[in-house]
Amino acid sequence: MHKRISEYVIEGCIRLSGFAVIGFVFLIFLFLLKDSLSLFGIYPVKEFLFGIHWLPISEPPKFGVIPLLLGSLYVTFGAIIICVPLGVGTAMFIAEVAPKSLKHILKSLVEILAAIPSVVLGFIGIIWLGPFLKNSFHLTTGMCGLTGSLLLAFMALPTIISISEDALAGVPKSFKEAAYGLGATRWQALWRIILPSASSGIIAGVMLGVGRVIGETMVVMMVTGNSPIIPTSILQPLRTLTATIAGEMGETVSGSDHYFALFAVGLVLFVITFVINFLAEIFLRKARR
């Protein structure tokens, strides 16, 4: 029985496709690097990485990434403070406290949240949340870091909740039964035994949530006010790495320094999320054992 030629062709395509994924990651990195290097030819890397002024249209232009980085970090940190306790708490509730029928409904609701496009959340930020916060806190504008953090926290919740819930549900039943056997209440078993065993998975979920938040563009572009200065408080407008690229790309001339600088910002984003995902994957592998 000889393999027909068509089979050789198909298997060739299959093998090629397998490598394609690696190829894409490399390609993305390469293209970002190529255009970033064009910037570093005329603008020192150190000033890019450590500069505290992002003034692309001034004479001479300044491309310091620190205000953008801090903007991203601020808004991410704000989001994390909110969504980690809420997310892990909800995951614990779904995994251990909710009765079966409620569990199903809750998981569906979380899936619904995951499906909401980010631009819609940005829209909600502009049309309701921003004005609401502005009036409640008597701010000059509702388009600030806090609005962004709240919406981003909302967006990251499904990631944290579903991965944490998987981690909690994946703890072997024998652990639970051993705890009950020793007279523990459901809460004690949950807090002292199940939660710690699931910690690797939960940490992975949080990291992936962080990655999602740092990489989010539309929400921050629409609600954080877009002022690329170092933020002094979360109640002020700020600018993130992502919003900078999205917002300024349309105004640059292809091949100009500003253009290359935006690619350099993209490279920074790529590296940050690469590292986060890599670490999260390590934690997930640990959790699977």
Binding site: L27, G215, T217, I245, F270
Partner: peptide
């Protein structure tokens, strides 16, 4: 390959936009 799949899923959408553009 598996690591690359994970990484692709974590790349921010705006970076895809940049990549697609260039």
């Amino acid at each position: 390959i598996k690591l690359s799949v994970v990484n692709l899923s974590g790349i921010p959408s705006i970076v895809y936009g940049l990549f697609g553009f260039t």
